[in-house]
């Protein structure tokens, strides 16, 4: 006898992610999942975003690492609440980790939640955290071929941030080639180029963020 199932999702993570998404949407919080290699500039991007948000958008950050609370301490110094999630042996954040945090005081009255994932180009991409958008960071020292070598992350990302553009010229990294490589595996992807160190190009990132916030605003609500 055959028994069929309608839309039966196996993964526990996907079910929890859907719950996180319901919580965040109901509270009008836009969550952005920031992914990239260790050292690609994820924490710096969160710090730069904190500065832009000051007096404009209520923001908090969740930051995932295998160990230490270095990143949360760094982010708190930029003036926004930051919660460190230490994953121990795990190489990625999962939706349960986010669900465990959504009711915390630090996250109560915010509009924007920045989730800095564990530094890794592969595993975190496969885990939905209930976010509104995924951002893949690729830094100049990593090389412009990475979107071709690790397509999974770029296929799932809404935006690619080319970071550390102040280092252009110090290697063979070609930003146009990096963009073309990303579009080859992910035609939908948007790209901004920036340097958190010099501030160059940050307006492209903040414009993108402002658009995500506007899309989630009740007056201009879009279907999910």
């Amino acid at each position: 006898m055959k028994i069929t199932f309608e839309n039966k999702v196996l993964s526990k993570n996907d079910r929890i992610a859907a719950e996180v998404r319901r919580h965040l949407t109901a509270r009008g919080i836009v969550a952005v999942n920031v992914l990239g290699s260790p050292g690609s500039g994820k924490t710096s991007l969160v710090e730069s975003t904190a500065a832009w948000c000051h007096g404009r958008v209520a923001v908090a950050a969740l930051t995932g690492d295998q160990a230490t609370r270095h990143d949360a301490d760094r982010i708190e110094r930029s003036g926004i609440p930051a919660i460190q999630i230490t994953t121990g042996s795990e190489c990625h954040l999962n939706a349960q980790r986010i669900l465990d945090c959504v009711a915390l005081d630090e996250l109560w009255d915010i509009e924007l939640l920045l989730i800095e994932n564990v530094g890794n180009l592969i595993c975190p991409a496969a885990y939905d955290l209930g976010e509104a958008a995924k951002v893949a960071i690729l830094s100049v020292p990593e090389g412009d071929d990475k979107p071709l070598k690790y397509p999974g992350l770029f296929q799932r990302a809404d935006l690619m941030v080319l970071s550390k553009i102040d280092l252009l010229g110090s290697s063979d990294f070609d930003p146009d080639r990096a963009e073309a490589n990303a579009r080859e595996v992910a035609p939908h992807i948007e790209v901004v180029r920036l340097s958190c160190r010099t501030g160059e190009g940050l307006e492209g990132w903040t414009r993108w963020l402002a658009r995500q916030l506007a899309l989630a605003a009740p007056t201009t609500a879009q279907p999910a």
């Binding site: 006898m1 196996l10 993964s11 996907d14």
Partner: peptide, 15 residues
């Protein structure tokens, strides 16, 4: 964009 929905689903079982 690529769907957020799970890419592994159960269709049926045979008993």
């Amino acid at each position: 964009r690529l769907s957020r929905e799970s890419s592994l689903k159960i269709r049926s079982i045979e008993v």
